[in-house]
Write a protein that binds this DNA or RNA. Sequence first.
DNA 1: CGAAATACATACCGCTCGGTATATATTTTA
DNA 2: TAAAATATATACCGAGCGGTATGTATTTCG
Lengths: 199, 199
Amino acid sequence: MARGRPREFDAELALERAMELFWRQGYEGTSLADLTDALGITRPSLYAAFGNKEALFRRVLERYEARAGAYRPRALSALTAYEVARRLLEGAAALHGDKSNPAGCLGVHGALACGPESGRIREEMISHRSAGEQAIRKRLRRAKQEGDLPPDADPAALARYLSAVLYGMAVLAAGGASLRDLREVAHTALQGWPSSPRN
Amino acid sequence: MARGRPREFDAELALERAMELFWRQGYEGTSLADLTDALGITRPSLYAAFGNKEALFRRVLERYEARAGAYRPRALSALTAYEVARRLLEGAAALHGDKSNPAGCLGVHGALACGPESGRIREEMISHRSAGEQAIRKRLRRAKQEGDLPPDADPAALARYLSAVLYGMAVLAAGGASLRDLREVAHTALQGWPSSPRN
DNA sequence: CGAAATACATACCGCTCGGTATATATTTTA
DNA sequence: TAAAATATATACCGAGCGGTATGTATTTCG
């Protein structure tokens, strides 16, 4: 049993609300006052539970990847390269086209450009994106080995290209693009994909 | 002749330096102290010359579009839809791959996500991006009329897709992507373009 | 029952934010 | 040469920033 006075708020619920805030306003754009207001807790409680703003953001990013970003590992487990690409693109469209979510992608606009004091978070986001791209690259390398992509295909270039389209969809979504808009982008990108749907 | 004491700094040079700052750190991430330091002028001088931070940012955005974004109208004046797409993609790669520029695109990350106090700027950036997409759409509509795109091509979808790839390249660049990386993305996107290079 | 441990509430810290009031310096016009 | 106009320099404004010290309430352990 946990000793001492038990906390009076639900940490999971608090994280959920913090995620929503950071998702909507980014790291720099979200203040501690915003957070304590939305979470309904006081500042010392927040610090006791989560450390500080940076640490809270990291927890939130973790949660974001596990929930909103769950379509990514699922997409990578598809059987063909085309299906991987399709699920990634359609998954991003579904996520960012869902208006019950904040507009855009936390991983993209969470700390894309910011002042020097947020530089650490910015760099962490960069390496998160890089890791995502690398996972796609790895999957497409395997696809090429399996003959699932043409011999002249470049898995690294395709992975980077796919990542770019996903990021672009996030920017479009931040600008208010609809689910239909985003699915059109996904569809258009798939039209040019180098392997056929059936292979 | 201008009456009164003449200003002691070069407004064009000041704008250039302000652009560099906003380009690197975004709107919210750039403080007045950053600006006055970099511009070498005092706060009242900045306000007398440019109004306030928002107005200065608008001037900077104007300058950005006229210089860094000059490749866009040039690309739209190309003779074929394929050439339009190629010049847009290669132009973005050249711009964001040039390491003498700040990483990323001011129009994308200048105010992608921010607190409520920067909401106006954020919305203006959204409509700027939307205007850019619309210009591409208009050009591709013409291309279709001219038989320069297949009959089943969707100019609106293609324009949105192209915009997404351009935004995605900006995000990649903000993460440190090289000119080579970005040109690979451009090349990959062109591989799937629905009209041939020669038509 | 203490005593230790934890959480809550209030009030505060130094610092930075965007923006400005006031006074002085430098120019042109009359 | 005086007045009007503009620019500069200094010092300051209230507000918000992330973060914390202090005191009190509530729990478990001995």
